[in-house]
């Protein structure tokens, strides 16, 4: 069984800065996994042509089971409000997604509130850090019919605020530990190296492969 995690950057290409739907479809086919956790996912956003990117990715991956879980409604980095569990609004959304070729018995979301303070972030191409407000996060888990029985696959994209992301991770892992095992968490944790160990007792890393930046990965 093949599991994957990818931060979509809302489908934008670094080569020309464009969001082209066929490239998202190509990415899904290249990854060719049974279950894929998606981060930085748009639904109904102008910048990505109003697409439901989780649905589009699932269609290209041949995944009949999928879910988009909004972290916020509105425009990320501009005007937005935190999404609530059970909401499915006809407004632009931004968050995470999970797609599965295997049947899903149950979906679970875990809300992870934003840090209450701004934090300095070094934006690629700039020399000085920019003080950014955090945005709400969440975890999305699917209890999947695996080849040897049920397993839980989850995804998340944690805060860039040091310490706060560990707090979110602890909360998420606690919630996930009550779901059918084995449990695999796929995602963009924004936690360097083995720092996760502070809160991930009983959990183990599955892979140590650099994925960022895409051109020449270092982390």
């Amino acid at each position: 069984m093949r599991l994957a995690s990818v931060n979509l950057l809302h489908g934008r290409s670094l080569s020309d800065g464009q969001v082209v739907p066929s490239r998202l479809a190509d990415a899904a086919r290249l990854i060719d996994a049974d279950v894929v956790g998606l981060q930085e996912v748009d639904r109904g956003q102008d910048r990505s042509g109003g697409a439901d990117q989780t649905a589009a990715f699932a269609a290209s991956a041949g995944a009949a089971h999928w879910r988009f879980a909004p972290a916020l409604w509105g425009t990320p980095g501009a005007s937005w409000r935190a999404a609530l569990d059970g909401e499915d609004l006809a407004e632009p959304g931004y968050g995470i997604g999970l797609v599965s070729r295997r049947p899903v018995q149950r979906w679970v979301t875990v809300r992870l509130p934003a840090a209450p303070v701004r934090s300095p972030v070094l934006i690629p191409g700039t020399r000085r850090p920019v003080w950014l407000a955090d945005e709400p996060r969440l975890g999305l888990a699917a209890v999947v019919d695996g080849p040897h029985g049920p397993l839980t696959v989850a995804t998340t994209h944690l805060s860039f605020v040091p310490g706060w992301n560990l707090r979110q991770l602890r909360r998420l892992l606690r919630a996930l530990s009550s779901l059918p095992q084995p449990v695999v968490l796929l995602g963009d944790l924004n936690v360097p190296g083995a720092t996760h160990r502070v809160v991930s007792h009983g959990w183990r890393p599955l892979a140590r492969v650099a994925t960022y930046p895409s051109v020449r990965p270092r982390v």
Binding site: R2, V6, V183, V184, A207
Partner: peptide, 30 residues
């Protein structure tokens, strides 16, 4: 990626795609 419980990894790779500033992290489990 983090795991709780019995998961046997048979392969890992980072796949560059036409989108994003991240590669996709892929894990094969047995």
């Amino acid at each position: 990626m983090l795991a709780l419980g019995e998961v046997r990894v048979t392969g890992t790779e980072a796949i560059a795609t036409p989108i994003s500033d991240h590669r996709a992290l892929v894990v094969d489990i047995g």
